[in-house]
Nucleic acid binder design. Sequence first.
DNA 1: AGTTGCAAGATTGTCGACAGTTTTTGGATT
DNA 2: AATCCAAAAACTGTCGACAATCTTGCAACT
Lengths: 231, 231
Amino acid sequence: MMNDEGSTGGPLFTELENTDLANRIANQVLMAIGDGRLRPGEKVGEARLARELGTSRAPVREALRLLESQGLIVTHPRRGFFVHAYEADELDEIYDLRECLELHAAGAAVERMTEADLDQLSGQVALMKRLAHEGQLGEQVEQDYAFHRMLCELGGNMRIVRLFDQIATQLRAGIALLGRVYDDPRELARAHDPLIEALAARDAERLRTELREHLEDARIHVVQLYRGNAG
Amino acid sequence: MMNDEGSTGGPLFTELENTDLANRIANQVLMAIGDGRLRPGEKVGEARLARELGTSRAPVREALRLLESQGLIVTHPRRGFFVHAYEADELDEIYDLRECLELHAAGAAVERMTEADLDQLSGQVALMKRLAHEGQLGEQVEQDYAFHRMLCELGGNMRIVRLFDQIATQLRAGIALLGRVYDDPRELARAHDPLIEALAARDAERLRTELREHLEDARIHVVQLYRGNAG
DNA sequence: AGTTGCAAGATTGTCGACAGTTTTTGGATT
DNA sequence: AATCCAAAAACTGTCGACAATCTTGCAACT
């Protein structure tokens, strides 16, 4: 009941982009938020977006509603859509939720994972270290999310995985304008070593403790930085 | 940072129902699912629904997309919307998630709640007992949700509360066709006494233990019944 | 000076329509 | 009788349009 995707490595076929117009628009908006072209709090007029994209307003509306349901866009009725401007308190809440979910999943993962899963996890950490060395900061952060996502997946509850994805999206958006978060990139990768150890020992309690500490560090790090930068 | 609503009792103004058409439609559909007029797996054609409601398809689409984001409707691209037919495994997942969230919130609630909050919680249980005596079964279940929602609220993380609401909605929909769940209605109300005791003692660990047991009971109860009836 | 009222302009909520696709209908064939 | 294929019907995805509402700018007023 896990993610057996074919045999070994990456996907066999490049996912043919048959996606619906609304989804493509949602991705565009998502990227625009990610790289700062759309600032927090900024208004996202559907008419304007439709003009710029050369589509009608209907799919734009759907896209924005989708992003609304994921927490990236807020709407004031009769006034339109706006990029959600995350407050520090909200990031705090998000991390609290993440901790709750991830600890739960991790506890289940310890019992459910195979040796192969364990190898994959530690391979992931190795990858992060390599990326840190090469200075690939953005990619490293992305692989960090991937690591934690795997952990959630191994917990076996797909709903939790989906929530993790939502949280990751929100964090990416919230942290976007923060620039780099860690002073030393290698710190981030190394912080995962204790987790791997606990996993290898299949020690649920220790894993939960380490993971809590790990996430708590990230939380205060980000929230503090955020309070300093944005308010 | 809690729900201080004005001074004392109820709301000062009756919330003027300016809800937009899409939301009203979403509620209609929700109720239709709730009372079985829309069966799990059944197709919900937007054109047909629009005709029956006397509106255009645009707000119907938005309503269905909203319900999709809440997990009650699934959509197969180019084929339309369908009422999500919950599998027993999914209810299991949902309860797992609920347990995760509620235990987390409850832990925080023990430290944050005031005496007044505690009174309100035990008042809620008293209300449930009264309803059980009067045979108001549906209302009792609704107040059960309200009790657990309060507990989540006291945890202080609004995101968790919103997730609880979603879960409650899904459970209502999933359990709708199950008919009555408990043999003796009073059993449900009484099951909350240990929770109140632990709360009154402000004993987080004991509360978590009792709550876990409470939810675990509900889970196996529902899932078993569901496997027997439908799954 | 600051507030209130009003007109112009822009934007949202909703509608009906069209093209392409899926499902259904109904007949022809084995 | 069951299966297969083609025409028809129904439906979704998308579009452009209109009315109601909101915002903006300006003038009148306290």
